[in-house]
Deep mutational scan, measured.
Amino acid sequence: MSIQHFRVALIPFFAAFCLPVFAHPETLVKVKDAEDQLGARVGYIELDLNSGKILESFRPEERFPMMSTFKVLLCGAVLSRVDAGQEQLGRRIHYSQNDLVEYSPVTEKHLTDGMTVRELCSAAITMSDNTAANLLLTTIGGPKELTAFLHNMGDHVTRLDRWEPELNEAIPNDERDTTMPAAMATTLRKLLTGELLTLASRQQLIDWMEADKVAGPLLRSALPAGWFIADKSGAGERGSRGIIAALGPDGKPSRIVVIYTTGSQATMDERNRQIAEIGASLIKHW
């Protein structure tokens, strides 16, 4: 067993022997301040990774656009098919120029040779490549099948209805392509620590998230040296922004954090800054 596999296998073990965790309302004060600064709703939840206990939450059962955070769930569904012998990570998928959609920095470079399922998941999570996500959605049967996968996990809230990039439209009061912070946090925890996926697939999923290259201005910008984070960000229309993450000190994750916002007129930089400040408060009061 590799060191990384050992780390993920012992996530519940280490967490069980940690000192009790206590909620700190100071972080919620910052979440509410972010709402004021952005002029928009902000949803927040913080779960203990081992027990699933909610440590703090704000608007945990209000719907927010998922945006690209759905790509972690998508690759979880792909990995479940791999575990069941219905898919192979090494299978190569070929596609054409007509398949390319807006923001496809990886797939646009491989029109000639195609990409493997493993490479597509890596591109979808680490670079948020939209064509990679659409190609992977095709392998599982489309958005409705991802929703069905989530329902089978016990998540009857999260739903995907459309493809990239239309799913980022974020129309107010439109339930399409949305989740709730509580539902997303619980589902992410199941994917990373539950028995739904094999140990190898859980490790692969967290490795992809740990290698995320496009979430630097968010929670990662607030992390002290030595902290662990595996995350996936999302951005959408109407001032929408979000991030889902597993993080913790001492090089291992111990909490799940989900943050979503929508309806702001603020710039992307300002949305990023507010999420980073929430992260800084979380870490300060850990």
Rank of each mutant, 00 (worst) to 15 (best):
S2M: 12
A9T: 15
I11E: 03
I11R: 05
P12H: 13
F14K: 02
A15C: 15
A16Q: 12
P20E: 12
V31A: 08
A34E: 03
A34Y: 06
A34T: 10
Q37M: 14
Q37W: 13
L38I: 10
R41P: 10
L49Y: 12
G52M: 06
L55M: 15
P60K: 14
F70G: 07
K71T: 00
A77F: 10
L79Q: 03
D83I: 03
Q86W: 10
Q88T: 13
G90A: 13
G90C: 09
R91C: 04
R92G: 06
S96P: 07
Q97F: 15
N98K: 14
D99E: 14
P105R: 05
T107M: 05
K109S: 14
D113E: 14
D113K: 12
V117A: 04
L120G: 02
C121A: 08
C121L: 05
D129G: 00
D129F: 00
N130T: 03
N134W: 02
T138H: 15
T139V: 12
A148V: 13
L150M: 11
L150Y: 08
H151C: 10
N152D: 15
M153Q: 09
D155C: 02
V157K: 15
W163H: 09
E164F: 00
L167K: 02
L167C: 11
I171R: 14
D174G: 05
D174M: 04
T179A: 03
P181T: 05
P181N: 01
P181H: 01
A182C: 13
A185R: 00
T186V: 14
R189V: 09
K190S: 14
K190T: 14
L191A: 06
E195C: 08
T198E: 11
T198N: 13
A200Y: 12
A200K: 13
Q203F: 08
Q203A: 12
Q203G: 13
L205I: 10
W208K: 01
K213T: 09
V214Y: 05
P217S: 10
S221D: 09
A222V: 13
A222K: 15
L223H: 03
P224L: 04
G226E: 10
F228P: 01
D231C: 04
D231I: 04
K232F: 00
S233K: 01
E237L: 13
S240N: 07
R241F: 02
G242L: 00
A245G: 09
D250L: 12
K252D: 09
K252N: 11
P253D: 07
S254R: 11
S254P: 07
R255E: 03
T262R: 08
A266E: 12
M268N: 07
R271W: 03
I275H: 01
E277M: 10
A280V: 14
S281A: 15
S281G: 08
I283S: 06
